[in-house]
Nucleic acid binder design. Sequence first.
DNA 1: ACGCTCACG
DNA 2: GACGTACGTGAGCGTA
Length: 934
Amino acid sequence: MTFDTTFGQGHHLHLIDGSAFIFRAYHALPPLTRKSDGLPIGAVAGFCNMLFRYVEDAKSGDAPTHVAVIFDHSSKTFRNEIYPAYKAQRPDLPEDLKPQFPLTREATRAFNIACIETEGFEADDIIAALACRARDAGGRVTIISSDKDLMQLVGDGVEMLDPMKNKRIGRDEVFEKFGVGPERVVDVQALAGDSVDNVPGAPGIGIKTAALLIQEYGDLDTLLERASEIKQPKRRQVLLEHADQIRISRRLVQLDRDTPLDVTLESLEIREPDDSLMDFLNAMEFRTLTKRVAEKRGVEPPLPAPTPAATVEAEEIAPLPFDHAAYEVVTEPAQLAEWIAVIHEVGHVAFDTETTGLDEMRAELVGISLCVTAGRACYIPLAHVTGTDDLFGGAQRVEGQMLISEALALLKPVMEDPAVLKIAHNAKYDCKMLARIGIAVAPIDDTMLMSYALHAGLHNHGMDALSEQYLRHTPIAIKGLIGSGKSQITFDRVAIADAAPYAAEDADVTLRLWELFRPQLHRARVTTVYETLERPLVPVLADMEMAGVRVDRETLSRMSGAFAQKMAMLEEEIHALAGRPFNVGSPKQLGEILFDEMGLQGGTKGKNGAYGTGADILEDLAAEGHDLPARVLDWRQVSKLKSTYTDALQDHVHPDTGRVHTSYSIAGANTGRLASTDPNLQNIPVRSEEGRRIREAFVAGPGKVLVSLDYSQIELRILAHIADLPALKEAFRQGHDIHAMTAAEMFNVPLEGMDPMIRRQAKAINFGVIYGISGFGLARNLRIPRADAQGFIDRYFERFPGIRTYMDETIAFAKANGHVLTLFGRRINTPEINARGPGAGFARRAAINAPIQGTAADIIRRAMIRMPAAIADLPARMLLQVHDELLFEVEEDAADTLIARARAVMENASDPAVKLSVPLIVDAGRGPNWAAAH
DNA sequence: ACGCTCACG
DNA sequence: GACGTACGTGAGCGTA
């Protein structure tokens, strides 16, 4: 083949790091499979999306003239001959990724982009060779990658582009990262080594030190020659002893610019894709991308390739477009009756309520949407008013709506019909809205909770996001209808013509998600979790939230006044100590006062240039005898109590009920815990004496008492069970002081007369283990030297070997499966577990903690679900859950019975699904208020 | 909108 | 003297 022009001046070559694209795509997307045959294609889908976006972006601005995607051929390269351990400890590729590699090559060729790989060489080497050749020919090069190993190539017309951050990496950025220019990057890397790739480097020397050394001596050879001149004895010794290892490291990180190439630069000239692209995308069954590419190319998208096995199913659900015009507005009873007849025929209905606000206790019903099959949905407007107020200042009800009473009379039977399944997204909200007007919706399914059972840890479970991700459809945004911020209006002021497509679409999306997720629950083996731990919680929580807890405004208000006075006093003192007035609530100003003006030691600036002024730092300063930080700590405590609790809580007292109605999010926390919002009643103070008094404002009604029951040490008990720790289990069976027992076991001291300090340390270690302990973390928590902390941990692992096994096995499971499981089968996904960098540490600790925290969450969920039936005949209500505690309100006479019943439910909550090898113990308390009940 | 700080288990 | 680190949450405030 011949070309008009040879590559040279004025040409611009883009080199794309294909392997990086693949891995990013694989981890960014859920495990999608091809509908017709189940072939895993998530990574290919992501790869194609990225390539398409790249192609579109590349057309504008600094456009390339030539482009290639470079892949790694296999894991064995010439570097393994130099150093067998190189990249040896890389985890095996996930099974579902392997078959996708050849497909990404096919995809690249389908985009009509050159696709290069060479046996025995890494993609980085090929990139190096191509970049050098292009540069030598007088052209420019951009490497699309963020891999630091490629940074040695930057300079003289070669730069990099980080595709994630869309950030250009030139000489300055390389210098920022390595402390040296691109020419010396290899030297720094050779010294620092790389634990991820198993490049040994010089032990104990990192990038910072390496950069210093190279800056001082000019280059690596000079440094190694003159190593004996280094002043620091440790460094000198390391360099002298490991000179060979460092030289080998350099050969490992040095890219081979002479890698043989069997392509010419000219052959990389940009070409438009042809029909084979559409064929490929279609064969992969990427509907949305096929459509988008077709639009861009101005051609008709081909009909989806029919595959015998899946034709029927595929046509029924996924390919149906969302047609807003097809949605009906229901204005007459007869019309609604027709819809209800269809619902009975189908046996299920997806529904959604439209209201005037997010607070179910205060919002008013505006309309209801229904959907029976994908695409077939309607909206029943009930309380829409004119957008602007009339002359008398009131909004006028608009024409063309059924009376609420008429509509509800028709809907109530079907919503309560045990033979008709009602499907909603976040059903608790809609159930509460309808419960307020006398409709007890049942039975239900909840697509938000289905997603939670399937995807906890992967993403949030809001409907819009799920629709985008799993239906490839962006629903109408509510913002477009009601606006945002100050000019926001309520939904009842939205014109029916605008409201109908929005509302009906929500029901439509819900139904399609339901159809999609239902079979997935089985495949992911989370049907039982969904049916026993998620769905049944909806009515239980709805009742608790509607019950609310009585809060005495007077008490709060009185406390608020006292706090205000105390704050004012403290503020005066603080200003006097500082020598000038300033905003005590501003960490920035406080930092400047402490560390700049007063010149106190120990100020460290964080990444955004501000001094840290956290409680731990201020406590250290206070311990040195400084008054100002001590006063600020006092001020902060009072300020927190006032603003977050005594003030804000008053605003949450419902005007009609005189009670506070929190809202629990079932799918908020990754581990299965609930989260309480608006207000958060799971973080009411208890640890400090002053804060605990806030709980005195949470009171029982007349003739009633509050009863609190909480699991004793539930997470440690679960740990003892899961990790099989005989000594701990025995201690729990005997009812011993678990932390004292741990201390006795670890330090070989007698249980009797245990030193409280030793016990405190054992306690910290016990909790640390649950959190995925590190020497650093324990040292900081206990304020002891890091080496001592590490010593404790080592001894702990020695005495309780089951812990190490549990941790190792949990991590291995997470790496192999991408998720961990609780004892009850709850699945918590760990997408970051195979990531590199500091994120890996977080992911590991989260994976260790999740089965323990999650199992505890499952247990209290089971107790809550069984509770209503167990106490149905008692004048008692369950009000709050605080992770390991349940709070009840009960008539005084029945308190003892309630405690006995509720305790039995809680202590036996794991039966019969899981037989725990430790007893669960529940402590109980009662009193006129929450402080007294605790 | 985002980070800091701090309340809880 | 590599890096950064206990797990899970929500709310109020100051700062940008």
